Simulated assay, not measured.
Amino acid sequence: MKLKALLPLVTHPDPNSDAVAAHAVAVARQFGADLHVLVVNVDIPPVSNALSDLLLDLPNKIRQAEEQSRARGAHLLDRVEHQASAAGVPLSTEEVSAGPAFLYEKAATSARYFDLDLVGWEKGNPTSRTLAEAVIFGAGRPTILLPEHCDIGTLDRIAIAWDGSRVAARAVADAKPLLARCETVSVVTVVDEKPLAELDAGERLADGLRKRGLQAEATRIEAGDAPVGAILQEQAIQLGAGLLVMGGYGHSRVRDFILGGATEAVLDDLRLPILLSH
């Protein structure tokens, strides 16, 4: 069955840079996925207040914000179409509008209808972070974060962050279609970050993957005093992995996301594409 991937683009207030177009197309091409682009532009309700109209010129500011949102969405869509055409990736597109409070919810809801979500990640861009959190914890689908300043290399080697937990198991299950397309799988277990139910958890998973026809190996590492998210990424890069698979720890209280330590460390310092599943 062919994969269907979604690239959601929220264009207000701080849209993604052009890098997201090339990154999303590169991932879709390597996994043989059809790519659907959802552009979510802002639709700001009118403010009917004579004083604000007179002193702040709010109607004009609202119009400018909406025009900028649509223009940026059209620009990003053009970039994705150009990249997809050059790479031979099947592409479909959609543009919608939503109020400022519902931009991310619209993206997360739409993401539930796809096999895989691709989200551009830019450090210092609050829109990209909020979108990533909304999709990871609200879509119920695996999400690959695409760091802005990172070339998408070959994805024939995938690393799995494994601690034997439920969310880690969910991430592996969600990543099965991608694992089936790679050449080598590296199972990475951090042994000193928290108590593990089974000391041989990583080897058990690797053995199970080998029995399913995958080329898999297990690696045990120690984090020491370093953030576990950073150590996992460093190890994945050293192993030559182009993608790291891990469970996303966290939940949302309305719009305030409470993240687990490893997830927080990854989002604070993303170094390679990461599939997060929740």
Rank of each mutant, 00 (worst) to 15 (best):
K2V: 11
L3V: 08
K4R: 12
A5K: 07
H12P: 02
S17Y: 03
S17P: 10
V20A: 01
V20I: 04
A24T: 03
A28P: 02
F31A: 02
H36G: 01
V39I: 12
V42F: 14
I44T: 15
N49F: 04
A50L: 11
L51Y: 15
L58H: 04
Q64C: 00
Q64I: 03
E67I: 00
E67K: 11
G73D: 07
A74R: 13
H75R: 15
L76M: 03
S85N: 13
A86M: 14
A86C: 05
G88L: 06
P90A: 12
E94M: 04
E94D: 08
E95G: 10
A98R: 14
G99F: 02
A101L: 11
Y104F: 15
A108N: 11
A111K: 08
R112Y: 00
Y113P: 00
Y113H: 09
D115M: 09
V119F: 06
V119K: 03
W121D: 02
G124A: 05
N125S: 10
E133S: 13
A134K: 12
I136T: 10
A139D: 06
G140L: 05
G140P: 09
R141M: 04
L145A: 13
R157M: 01
A161V: 09
W162H: 11
G164D: 15
G164M: 09
V167E: 03
A168R: 07
A169I: 01
R170N: 13
V172P: 02
D174W: 07
A175H: 08
A175P: 04
K176I: 09
R181S: 12
E183I: 00
T184H: 15
S186Y: 10
S186F: 06
V190L: 08
V191F: 11
V191G: 06
A197C: 00
L199E: 08
G202Q: 12
R204S: 03
A206S: 13
L209F: 09
K211C: 05
A218W: 08
T219F: 14
R220V: 04
I221A: 10
D225L: 01
D225W: 00
G229W: 01
I231F: 01
I231R: 15
Q235F: 10
G240Q: 05
L243E: 07
L244S: 11
G247I: 11
Y249N: 05
I258G: 00
G261I: 01
D268H: 14
L275T: 07
S277Q: 10
